[in-house]
Simulated assay, not measured.
Amino acid sequence: MSGTSEARRGGGRDRDTAGRARNARPRDGLGRPLPYGADGVERQPEGVVRGPEETVAEAQTLLEAGKPFHAHEVFEDAWKSGPEDERALWRGLAQLAVGLTHAARGNAMGGARLLRRGAGAVGEWASGTGRERPYGMDLAELTAWARELAGVVEQEDKAISAEAWAPRLCGRAD
């Protein structure tokens, strides 16, 4: 019996080659699990070490495609593999992407909470380091976007379009 079949039957877990637990269930664009055998969105590989500029570019592409859950995974890789003094920045960005994910799934309370938490973390990191535009990202604009969206999802209390609300990590295009 294959590992995937065992996982479906509850007799085991999907594992990668290093023995770490994986979930082989397909996912939709917002990271929600789909039934086994369904067509899902290709998963982001986990544990990829990227340079900061590559992280920002890949996350931006995913955000613009309406895939904030997948952008969160890219930020999480940077958080876990990056320099210690930048981990709070990448963790805050991951929280913003998860907040957008929850808001797009219709979870207004969870989305607003994570958007505000991520905005606070990113803003605190910027003020603590004096770096307002690391790797070209406009952190002031990003925190303003997150706080605005948190208010919108609380007020409207319905799912928003992740694609329409995708932030511009490096500021507005002129």
Rank of each mutant, 00 (worst) to 15 (best):
S2Y: 04
T4F: 14
S5F: 14
S5T: 14
R8M: 14
G10L: 14
G11M: 09
R15E: 13
R15F: 07
T17S: 07
R25P: 09
R27Y: 11
R32H: 09
L34G: 08
Y36P: 10
G40K: 14
G40Y: 15
G40A: 15
V41L: 14
Q44R: 12
V49R: 15
R50E: 09
T55Q: 11
A59V: 09
Q60T: 14
T61I: 07
L62Y: 09
L62S: 09
G66F: 07
A71P: 13
A78R: 02
W79L: 01
D85T: 09
E86V: 05
A88N: 01
W90V: 06
R91K: 13
L96V: 05
G99N: 15
A104I: 11
R105S: 11
M109A: 04
M109C: 04
A112C: 08
R116E: 15
G120P: 03
G123I: 00
G123D: 06
E124W: 01
T129F: 03
P134L: 00
Y135V: 10
L139S: 02
E141W: 11
L142Y: 02
W145K: 03
R147T: 09
V152P: 02
Q155E: 11
Q155Y: 08
S161A: 09
A164C: 13
A166R: 02
L169P: 12
A173L: 13
